[in-house]
Protein backbone atom coordinates (compact mmCIF):
# COMPACT_ATOMS: atom_id res chain seq x y z
CA UNK A 1 0.00 0.00 0.00
CA UNK A 2 1.74 3.15 -1.09
CA UNK A 3 1.58 6.09 1.24
CA UNK A 4 0.74 9.59 0.11
CA UNK A 5 2.75 12.64 1.03
CA UNK A 6 0.47 15.32 2.48
CA UNK A 7 1.33 18.97 3.06
CA UNK A 8 -1.19 20.92 5.07
CA UNK A 9 -1.50 23.75 7.58
CA UNK A 10 -2.39 22.89 11.16
CA UNK A 11 -3.04 25.77 13.57
CA UNK A 12 -1.17 28.11 11.24
CA UNK A 13 1.95 25.94 10.87
CA UNK A 14 2.78 24.12 7.67
CA UNK A 15 3.21 20.41 8.37
CA UNK A 16 3.90 17.30 6.31
CA UNK A 17 3.15 13.66 6.88
CA UNK A 18 2.93 10.36 5.03
CA UNK A 19 -0.56 8.91 5.11
CA UNK A 20 -2.06 5.61 4.16
CA UNK A 21 -5.02 6.84 2.04
CA UNK A 22 -7.43 4.95 4.33
CA UNK A 23 -6.29 6.80 7.45
CA UNK A 24 -8.61 9.43 8.88
CA UNK A 25 -7.47 12.97 9.50
CA UNK A 26 -7.95 12.19 13.19
CA UNK A 27 -5.47 9.30 12.98
CA UNK A 28 -3.01 11.48 11.09
CA UNK A 29 -3.26 14.30 13.64
CA UNK A 30 -2.79 11.92 16.54
CA UNK A 31 -0.36 9.35 15.17
CA UNK A 32 1.71 11.27 12.64
CA UNK A 33 1.68 14.78 14.08
CA UNK A 34 1.50 13.96 17.80
CA UNK A 35 -1.55 16.20 18.24
CA UNK A 36 -3.50 14.03 20.65
CA UNK A 37 -5.92 16.71 21.85
CA UNK A 38 -8.58 15.58 19.36
CA UNK A 39 -10.11 12.37 20.71
CA UNK A 40 -11.69 9.33 19.13
CA UNK A 41 -14.93 8.53 20.93
CA UNK A 42 -16.68 6.58 18.19
CA UNK A 43 -14.93 6.92 14.84
CA UNK A 44 -18.31 7.16 13.11
CA UNK A 45 -19.37 10.80 13.33
CA UNK A 46 -21.67 10.41 16.32
CA UNK A 47 -19.78 11.85 19.30
CA UNK A 48 -17.91 14.94 18.11
CA UNK A 49 -14.84 14.28 20.31
CA UNK A 50 -12.70 14.55 17.17
CA UNK A 51 -14.09 17.97 16.09
CA UNK A 52 -11.69 20.22 14.18
CA UNK A 53 -12.21 22.90 11.58
CA UNK A 54 -11.22 22.37 7.96
CA UNK A 55 -10.89 25.67 6.06
CA UNK A 56 -12.98 27.17 8.86
CA UNK A 57 -15.82 24.62 8.67
CA UNK A 58 -16.54 22.45 11.70
CA UNK A 59 -16.14 18.75 10.86
CA UNK A 60 -15.53 15.41 12.52
CA UNK A 61 -11.90 14.60 11.79
CA UNK A 62 -12.77 10.89 11.98
CA UNK A 63 -14.94 11.41 8.86
CA UNK A 64 -12.22 13.17 6.84
CA UNK A 65 -9.35 11.31 5.24
CA UNK A 66 -5.86 12.53 6.08
CA UNK A 67 -5.12 12.83 2.37
CA UNK A 68 -8.06 15.23 1.99
CA UNK A 69 -6.21 17.75 4.16
CA UNK A 70 -3.70 18.41 1.37
CA UNK A 71 -3.41 22.17 0.87
CA UNK A 72 -6.13 22.94 3.43
CA UNK A 73 -6.21 24.76 6.78
CA UNK A 74 -6.86 22.59 9.82
CA UNK A 75 -7.49 24.03 13.28
CA UNK A 76 -7.44 21.81 16.37
CA UNK A 77 -7.80 22.26 20.12
CA UNK A 78 -4.01 22.66 20.34
CA UNK A 79 -4.33 26.01 18.54
CA UNK A 80 -6.98 27.42 20.85
CA UNK A 81 -4.96 28.93 23.71
CA UNK A 82 -2.48 31.64 22.82
CA UNK A 83 0.67 30.46 24.54
CA UNK A 84 -0.23 30.23 28.22
CA UNK A 85 -3.29 32.45 27.75
CA UNK A 86 -6.41 30.30 27.74
CA UNK A 87 -9.21 31.12 25.30
CA UNK A 88 -12.25 32.59 27.13
CA UNK A 89 -14.17 29.37 26.41
CA UNK A 90 -11.44 27.31 28.06
CA UNK A 91 -11.43 29.61 31.12
CA UNK A 92 -15.21 29.52 31.41
CA UNK A 93 -15.23 25.72 31.16
CA UNK A 94 -12.90 25.61 34.17
CA UNK A 95 -14.90 28.23 36.09
CA UNK A 96 -18.21 26.49 35.50
CA UNK A 97 -16.77 22.99 36.02
CA UNK A 98 -18.10 22.15 32.55
CA UNK A 99 -16.00 19.00 32.39
CA UNK A 100 -15.46 15.90 34.45
CA UNK A 101 -13.41 13.23 32.70
CA UNK A 102 -12.60 15.75 29.95
CA UNK A 103 -12.75 13.35 27.02
CA UNK A 104 -15.43 15.32 25.21
CA UNK A 105 -13.97 18.71 26.12
CA UNK A 106 -11.53 19.37 23.24
CA UNK A 107 -14.23 18.62 20.68
CA UNK A 108 -16.82 20.72 22.48
CA UNK A 109 -14.43 23.66 22.79
CA UNK A 110 -13.56 23.56 19.10
CA UNK A 111 -17.26 23.28 18.19
CA UNK A 112 -18.27 26.09 20.56
CA UNK A 113 -15.55 28.36 19.19
CA UNK A 114 -16.87 27.77 15.66
CA UNK A 115 -20.37 28.69 16.87
CA UNK A 116 -19.29 31.94 18.52
CA UNK A 117 -17.35 33.01 15.43
CA UNK A 118 -20.53 32.68 13.40
CA UNK A 119 -23.05 33.67 16.08
CA UNK A 120 -21.50 35.82 18.83
CA UNK A 121 -24.81 36.11 20.70
CA UNK A 122 -26.46 32.67 20.54
CA UNK A 123 -29.58 31.69 22.44
CA UNK A 124 -29.46 28.68 24.73
CA UNK A 125 -31.46 26.73 22.13
CA UNK A 126 -28.95 27.62 19.42
CA UNK A 127 -26.08 26.43 21.59
CA UNK A 128 -27.85 23.18 22.38
CA UNK A 129 -28.64 22.45 18.72
CA UNK A 130 -25.17 23.46 17.53
CA UNK A 131 -23.58 21.09 20.06
CA UNK A 132 -26.05 18.24 19.49
CA UNK A 133 -23.29 16.29 17.73
CA UNK A 134 -20.99 16.50 20.75
CA UNK A 135 -21.76 13.82 23.30
CA UNK A 136 -20.77 14.03 26.96
CA UNK A 137 -21.26 11.08 29.29
CA UNK A 138 -20.39 13.00 32.47
CA UNK A 139 -21.71 16.51 32.87
CA UNK A 140 -25.34 16.33 31.83
CA UNK A 141 -24.59 19.23 29.44
CA UNK A 142 -26.03 21.98 31.60
CA UNK A 143 -22.72 23.34 32.80
CA UNK A 144 -21.34 23.15 29.26
CA UNK A 145 -24.19 25.27 27.94
CA UNK A 146 -23.77 27.80 30.76
CA UNK A 147 -20.03 28.03 30.17
CA UNK A 148 -20.53 28.66 26.46
CA UNK A 149 -23.15 31.36 27.07
CA UNK A 150 -20.96 33.01 29.70
CA UNK A 151 -17.89 32.94 27.44
CA UNK A 152 -19.97 34.44 24.63
CA UNK A 153 -21.08 37.28 26.91
CA UNK A 154 -17.51 37.97 27.96
CA UNK A 155 -16.22 37.89 24.39
CA UNK A 156 -18.90 40.33 23.24
CA UNK A 157 -17.92 42.84 25.93
CA UNK A 158 -14.26 42.55 24.95
CA UNK A 159 -15.09 43.16 21.33
CA UNK A 160 -17.24 46.19 22.16
Amino acid sequence: MSKIHVTTTVNGDEVEFLADPRESLLDCLRDHLGLTGSKEGCGTGDCGACSVTLDGTLVCSCLVLGVEAEGRQVATIEGMAEGNELHPLQRKFLEHAALQCGFCTPGILVAAKALLEKTPDPTETEVRYWLAGNLCRCTGYDKIIRAVLDAAAEMRQEAA
Partner: peptide
Protein backbone atom coordinates in the same frame (compact mmCIF):
# COMPACT_ATOMS: atom_id res chain seq x y z
CA UNK B 1 -28.96 15.30 8.16
CA UNK B 2 -26.68 14.75 11.15
CA UNK B 3 -24.99 17.25 13.41
CA UNK B 4 -23.31 20.59 12.75
CA UNK B 5 -20.13 18.64 12.02
CA UNK B 6 -21.89 16.34 9.54
CA UNK B 7 -23.56 19.38 7.92
CA UNK B 8 -20.11 20.72 7.14
CA UNK B 9 -19.52 17.76 4.83
Amino acid sequence: VGSTQVQGR
